[in-house]
Design a protein around this nucleic acid. Structure first.
Lengths: 251, 251
DNA sequence: TAGCTTTGTGTCAATTTTACACTATCCAAA
DNA sequence: TTTGGATAGTGTAAAATTGACACAAAGCTA
């Protein structure tokens, strides 16, 4: 593999962007980190949008997604997975979006293909803060989101679906929880991702059988009810599992 | 949704391409339709590549993939699914690939992000033929492919994986078979996609339970052994199934 | 100390999965 | 026409998994 073209300066590629669906879990429900575009577009359409940006010509797509994530949250080394590319020619040309683009893009009329990612961040590690491209960012429960800028709602749907599929195959949900968590929290997390109720006892049986939890000799404190045992995620077992994979479909 | 920018002429977008992993099944094994780039690059690297092309500015990604597929095979209305975007800055800058690009691209040095698709075509409906961007195209058994141009081998791996996952969730395999087929052929197809042997009786039981096959009162002819019953795919049941979905993971 | 809230636990029936081997049918070759 | 070769087609029993279901224990609060 040779690199024949050394890029001294890296420039924004006006035709390709990344957008991130940043999932969090407030121990109650699944949430997404959205940016508020402010008044400028509110007269015409949704204020909220997924964080995203054009890519630089010297970075690959994963790097670009990580950069966006880092700029917004200060987090890196985060679970990140590509959802796919979205490239409708008119995806950014709704009236309500054009105004905003004029204010942030050098070529607001350019056709932009976006590559969507989803990431899982432990909300406890992060509180929203201002960033270069977002004055305001906030966690919004997934179920309350009815519309978003551009085609971001469609992207969100795709990301949810991908997460749903993925969590059936790999125990990635732990990325959304604090280091120590209770089985009830994990249970609730699965319910909100799969978007259906799961029997408590059956869930516990099944998750325990995966053998990736370490039970700590420590209880919840300060809760007005029987305190729960805390658990930790067992990375070694996880690695082993991802090797083996856990297939579902019986064949 | 308003369209504010009418494009009279559509131009090639020099920064975004689509590549298609066109799967076929020769009733023995899974195959992929590859184009032969010919002598020009053979001195340096692989001659074979996935069919693909730059997108036009007035078409969306699915349309572009369909166009590539149509140009090469004359087939349209084919099962098609996005695999994802591949955007390493150096993905097309191997020495062995640059020569070829010079011969087919207006801007051979431009950075190109590609969006990969996989499609399933019934091989019986198609015999390779010349096309605008490929003098020669041919079916190659998946297992025999060791290297491809650009990052196409990586794309192929991703497409195989996606197909593997997908076939566990939806009965899409039928797209690879002729209209009438035998259970053994279907069996063999699943084995070659999942890349592992499946017990014959268990497979038959399971597939029958899906209830998407119609048994024809017709037998194979001219085979030097007990002829197999022929089956047909039942579209109505399939639609019903995709509604319900068939989940694997038990939760 | 009484009451509220959530945790944590077991069993049984039904279903699904896995492993496994022999006969039936057609063609081809002798 | 008989025989051999090849693949089709079929059932069962043991093991594992799933799904449905209810009540006592622990801590907090008033």
């Amino acid at each position: 593999m040779q690199h024949n073209q050394k890029k001294i300066n890296s420039e924004l590629n006006p035709n390709v962007s990344v957008d991130c669906v940043i999932f969090g879990f407030d121990l109650e429900q699944l949430t997404v980190l959205l940016i508020d575009r402010g008044e400028i577009s509110s007269a015409f359409g949704p204020r909220l949008a997924l964080p995203g940006n054009l890519i630089y010509d010297n970075e690959n797509l994963d790097m670009a997604a990580n950069r966006v994530l880092d700029e917004l949250t200060g987090l890196n080394n985060i679970y990140l997975e590509q959802v796919g590319a979205f490239g409708d020619p008119d995806r950014i040309h709704k009236e309500s979006d054009r105004e905003w683009l004029k204010s942030i893009r050098a070529e607001p009329e350019a056709r932009v293909i976006t590559v969507a990612y989803f990431t899982l961040v432990p909300m406890s590690n992060y509180k929203p803060q201002a960033s270069s491209f977002a004055k305001n960012a906030d966690w919004v429960p997934v179920n309350e989101i009815k519309e978003l800028a551009f085609d971001h709602f469609e992207i969100l749907q795709a990301a949810k679906e991908k997460l749903k599929q993925k969590i059936k195959i790999q125990p990635i949900g732990f990325n959304l929880l604090p280091e120590k968590f209770t089985l009830s929290q994990l249970h609730r997390l699965y319910e909100s991702i799969l978007d259906k109720p799961l029997d408590k006892r059956n869930f516990r049986r099944k998750i325990q059988k995966l053998d990736i939890l370490t039970s700590l000799r420590e209880k919840q404190r300060g809760v007005p009810h029987k305190p729960s045992l805390l658990y930790e995620f067992n990375e070694d077992k996880y690695q082993e599992l991802t090797q083996t994979g856990f297939d579902n479909f019986g064949f």
